[in-house]
């Protein structure tokens, strides 16, 4: 359940930014999470509801944007789509590929007032 730690990081960053820019309430938080990132989205949503309590994000809604898994196959020398870290290349069936996207864990945007 490191999703709690992740949410503490989210609330910390969100609180700092909101205060620095002179606002007092967070209405919505947009996250970008890669499809292959080491995060359980249900656990993240649950943890967010617990961790946001008694902060300026206490009523904030959480929007999660999932980013697709993308990789570069060294055999085929071209970009491919991957769904899991153990997927073979859909073109050559090999595993010699490097992830280029899909492991992101980013706070994208906030709506504040």
């Amino acid at each position: 359940m490191h999703e709690f730690s992740l949410c503490e990081g989210i609330i910390d960053a969100v609180t700092t930014q909101t205060r620095q820019q002179g606002f007092s309430r967070v209405r919505r938080v947009w996250l970008e999470i890669g499809a292959l990132a080491n995060v359980e989205l249900d656990a993240l949503r649950f943890a967010f509801e617990v961790v946001r309590d008694n902060t300026i994000a206490a009523t904030a809604e959480l929007d999660i944007i999932t980013l697709p898994g993308r990789a570069w196959c060294l055999n085929c020398a071209q970009a491919i789509a991957v769904g899991e870290l153990y997927d073979p290349c859909p073109l050559c069936g090999g595993y010699q590929w490097r992830l280029t996207g899909g492991n992101e864990m980013r706070i994208k945007e906030l709506e504040v007032e």
């Binding site: 989210i10 930014q17 864990m105 980013r106 706070i107 994208k108 945007e109 709506e111 504040v112």
Partner: peptide, 9 residues
């Protein structure tokens, strides 16, 4: 108002 963060968690 929207604030763009683009910050790693």
């Amino acid at each position: 108002r929207r604030i763009s963060l683009e910050q790693d968690i």
